[in-house]
Amino acid sequence: MRKTWIHYFLLALFLLSAVPAVQAETRIGFVNISLVLKKAPQADAARQKLENEFAPRDEKIVAMQKKLKQLEEELARDADIMSDEVRKKKERQIVLEKREIERTREEFNEDLNIRRNDELNRLQKLVYDTIVTLAKDKNYDLVVGDNVIYAAESVDLSEQVLERLNAQYKPNPGNAQN
C-alpha cells in the first residue's frame, strides 16, 4: 500500500513539474508557399526575364513554321503543273523543314525548362530565406508550409512574407532576382 502512495506522489510531482512546459506559449505560423511564389514581384520579374530571353528563339520557330506552310501551299497549288523532279525536290524540302522545326522546338523547350527551373530554384531559396528571417524576427517556434489541412488567419504569415519580398525587390532590367 505504501508503494502505491509513493507511486501516486511521484506521478503527481512529475505532472506538476510538467505544467509550466505545457503552458509555455508556442508560436506557430503558416505560409501559403504557392500563393507567395505566385504573387512575389521577383516571380513576375523572373517570368518577364524568361520571356525576353526566349522571345527571339520563339519568333524564329514561328518564322520557320510560316516558311513551311508556304512551301506546303506551293506544293498543293502547283503539284499538277510541276515536273516529277521539282515536285520530289519540294517534298524533300518540306520533310527537311519539318525535321528542322521539330529539332529546334525540342531544343527550345529543353533550354526553357532548364532556365525556368533555375529561376524557380532561385526564387524558392529567396522565399525560404525570407520565411526563416521573418520567423526568427517574430520569434516563431514553428512555421509550416503547404500541405496544411487548415490554418487560421491569425497564424497565416503569407502576407507578411510577401510584404518583405516586396520590400526587398528593386526592379532592375538586367537582374530579375534581388
Rank of each mutant, 00 (worst) to 15 (best):
R2Y: 07
K3D: 15
W5R: 10
H7S: 13
H7A: 15
Y8T: 06
F9D: 11
F9N: 06
L11P: 04
A12D: 06
F14Q: 07
F14K: 00
L16W: 03
A18N: 11
V19M: 13
V19D: 08
P20D: 05
V22F: 14
A24Y: 03
E25I: 08
V31D: 09
V31L: 04
S34V: 06
L37V: 02
K38S: 15
A40Y: 01
K49T: 08
E51T: 08
F54Q: 05
A55P: 10
P56T: 02
E59N: 10
A63I: 01
K66D: 15
K69R: 12
E74H: 00
L75G: 06
R77A: 14
D80M: 10
I81G: 05
M82Q: 09
S83A: 07
D84G: 10
R87T: 00
R87P: 00
K89R: 14
R92N: 15
R92W: 04
V95A: 15
V95Y: 09
E97I: 02
K98Y: 00
E100Y: 01
I101H: 05
R105H: 03
E106K: 10
E107S: 10
E110M: 02
N113E: 06
R115L: 02
R115C: 03
R116N: 13
D118S: 14
E119S: 13
R122A: 12
Q124I: 01
Q124S: 12
K125N: 14
L126S: 14
D129R: 13
D129T: 09
I131H: 04
I131K: 02
I131S: 08
V132E: 14
K136Y: 05
K136I: 03
D141F: 05
L142W: 08
V144W: 06
G145K: 04
D146M: 03
V148G: 12
A151S: 11
S154Q: 09
S154C: 01
S158I: 01
L162G: 09
A167H: 03
K170I: 06
P171H: 07
